[in-house]
Design a protein around this nucleic acid. Structure first.
Lengths: 344, 344
DNA sequence: TTGTATGCGTTATCAG
DNA sequence: CTGATAACGCATACAA
């Protein structure tokens, strides 16, 4: 690896002069700068980030910790955030937890060891204490899920309202047998979304007996299995999904069981992907302001990083907690109630 | 930030003893190790990767450079590779190029500056010379696309055969008016896939006049627009997609124009996603051994990293070039030829 | 404008 | 078994 010394040796000048030339320091002759630059380019010099870091503070790395990249939602976050980071001279380090607290902890330690400038995280179900302690030492923005102990900035969506609106929508179409498949209630989002469903049921005067609720891991497999089992026992006319991957799994189940959408069942999916509209007129979705959230969190993190450079000790000054609204993308045809089978 | 010195001071021992204890060095008393570890844990010590790197060689970072995370294909690669890296103690740094040579170059410089141990890259359309020069300095594995100048390991799929097989499949169903929408011919994959289509046409004795070809950027938008325009002028009965995102765009176009699949048109999609089967029986796909490729490339890169540690100078010893086969996932109903409209 | 000296946190080497 | 010391590459305060 070619260093600043090599360039200095080549040009018979001192290393510090080279350093200054490379840094475009004002007190350096243009001639020297030019000579140094060409030499650097010739030799293929690339600055040693670690050495630079030894003197300064943190690296130009920002960690993104998410449960799953295959989720459309998080993929979009990753993309948007990568752009935001790059335009500010940072690189994004991707860490995937699979919702495992141990994996999460390990990733965070690595990031701190690499002196990441900051972290954007979608916390897993129940993070370790140690994890929270570690996170308190650097700028952190939480996304979607909200871990109680950690007093960090947070951007999320109004989960309760989102599902409530979806429930009212189905009720408004005339549905009276509703089902909900959502993520773990231990997740802040899982609890809020379920609460929205329950409020909807109450407001629509729907008997709890003619509703079905299942919560579990926010994975496609869980939703698919749950759907297939449910459709035998409880025949809903309307179904609400409480997660992007769950929607995926439900649709898998639909295509496996041959249930017609919207013929037999109206569904409200969580998250509005392009393929949502491929389901004829059946699939209403809860649109999410993903890009807005990603942008906002990126921008705020960069700001926090700036702030923490000024004050030696990082202090999470008045964490922001912003809730962005989802929006229903209605695609139901009113035909959806025509072909309802008899209640079992 | 708490350092090794802080621990030493706290315990009234020398920094070197602390270092040895932390490293579980054999010539250190168990008592000392225990004391040091608890102190480290108490103080929240995390090793400074940069400082460690100053002495040693490279970091524990591996770069993944891809055009697009939103592409199912690359998302799966990212996930699989992240697992492979983690289990070997590496962290994955995600870099998204959007197929821009400048962005690509910048990312690679950053990675080298951070002394990434190695890089897995899906090169962009026409990488800069400088980019190739930089890449020659460290272990690199190429995925899917193959940049001529760079003598690095490469894993890809047999693009020519894949599209050829798809073409023969449609021809075998009785189709004689075929269309192909693919990626730029400047891409190694774009050229190979188009060649496969052309060979298929020849072998099926299909007149070039009753076929349609369009190549362009491998984005959904391009495919959608091309599809919508094509469907007015040239009415194919069979269409083959030459890229994952292109399939996406084509299906967007289908749903916009109201073309029935497979009623009016048989389609072979590139890449087999779960949503592929949501198209009734219409959508045959070219299944890709994504996970195999990702696994293989990860494992090989780790091996190359090992090798490069032993020899001071990194020499790309006999680069591997492996071609993995795709497989057709047939879902066509034979009904697809029943409703053909008249030729325009 | 340029050169010299110093220190960042770790670890390997050598001395105790 | 433990302590002192040097070195990694870079940036900067200070001297020239």
């Amino acid at each position: 690896m070619v260093t600043i010394k090599d360039i200095a040796l080549q040009l018979n000048i001192s290393p510090s002069t080279v350093a200054r030339a490379l840094a475009d320091h004002p007190h350096t002759s243009d001639a020297t700068k030019a000579r140094v630059r060409t030499a650097a380019s010739d030799l293929g010099y690339v600055v040693h980030a670690a050495a630079r870091m030894m003197r300064g503070q943190s690296s130009k790395l920002i960690g993104l910790i998410i449960p799953d990249v295959q989720n459309d939602f998080y993929a979009t976050v990753a993309k948007t955030l990568a752009e935001t980071c790059n335009s500010a001279g940072f690189q994004l380090v991707l860490a995937i937890t699979e919702d495992e607290p141990a994996t999460e902890n390990k990733h965070i330690r690595e990031l701190i060891s690499a002196r990441a400038a900051g972290i954007v995280i979608v916390p897993c179900r129940s993070p370790w204490r140690d994890t929270i302690k570690l996170l308190k030492g650097l700028p952190v923005v939480q996304l979607i899920r909200n871990t109680p102990g950690l007093g960090a900035d947070w951007f999320g969506i109004d989960d309760e309202s989102a599902i409530h609106e979806a429930t009212m929508h189905l009720s408004g179409l005339g549905h009276t047998r509703l089902a909900y498949i959502g993520g773990h209630q231990e997740l802040s989002t899982g609890a809020a979304r379920l609460a929205g469903f329950n409020r909807g049921l109450r407001e629509a005067d729907i008997d709890l007996g003619s509703s079905f609720v299942a919560t579990g891991p926010p994975r496609a497999a869980f939703a698919k299995q749950t759907f297939v089992e449910m459709i035998k026992k409880f025949k809903p006319t309307g179904l609400i999904s409480g997660g992007s991957r769950l929607t995926y799994g439900i649709l898998e189940g639909v295509s496996q069981t041959g249930v017609r959408v919207p013929g037999d069942l109206s569904i409200v999916g969580f998250g509005d992907s392009p393929w949502s509209r491929w389901w004829g007129n059946g699939l209403t979705t809860i649109g999410l302001p993903i890009q807005d959230i990603a942008h906002a969190s990126g921008a705020l993190l960069l700001r926090r990083i700036e702030q923490s450079k000024n004050s030696n000790e990082y202090q999470p000054v008045r964490p922001s907690r912003a809730v962005l609204s989802s929006f229903l993308v209605k695609r139901d045809s009113t035909a959806s109630l025509v072909n309802l089978g008899p209640d079992p």
